[in-house]
Amino acid sequence: MYGRALKPLALATAAGAALAFGLIFFYAPLDADQGFIQKIFYLHVPMAIVALLGFLAGGVMAAMHLRTRRRIWDMRSYVAIHLSIILAVGVLVTGSIWAKASWGHWWVWDEPMLVSFLIVFLLYAVYQPLRFSIDDPERQARYASVFAISGAAFTVLNFVAVRMAATYTHPRVFSQTGGNMPAEMFLTFLVSLAAMALIFTTLWTLELGSKNASERLRRARRRLQREADGGALGLDGEGGRARPAGGAPAPAPASVSAASVPAPR
């Protein structure tokens, strides 16, 4: 089921990314103050928004996992969070470059978005170590879900706290995103945001599909191994029986035949 959605998604992503690039470099006007470097805004801010939404979506999916007890929701939550962590690294790097170019420092503490992002990133950087230092897969999924839900709630709370601290020590209005942007810039920004969201969705679908396929392959291989060990008859008869028993759609037979290569040993 993942394979079918992937092709249109990938095409839409390619088109969206191409359109966004075109608009960024040939349509959006140069910023009067910052010049060319301002164009990093079309990469930095969409990445930040998508990463944040990814963390929040990971929390919602984790809640679905705890509620329905279906492993697939944990996988979805895991993939969303781990893609968001990668995007968050991108956000910090591009934010740093932008800060250096327009303020002269690699890091500025009075930019609440960037600072909040660093804290959220530091928290989510522990997600994978936590997850993979629990051996039992069922407990691993449960604990990771509890982390994901707490993390999503914390992300919101943390933004409030950091913004409060920033407005307290630097009382000024932050309106560098949105607000008084020319229409051309805003349109380019929206297209870039949509392209980034599409990239995220495509990668998410791709990774889920690959995880799903390798999980199925492992299960099919295990079943084949069991049958090869248990049955005294030849492999053909056993393999033939395994196929309908799996009851799986299209990918399953392919993975069974792929798995049957090492099985006789």
Partner: peptide
Amino acid sequence: ETRAREVIGPLLLLPLVVPLAIA
């Protein structure tokens, strides 16, 4: 429940208490 609990615990707790440190 984790294997490296002496490490995971502090690493989890410190970012989570940043709002308290701020306030």
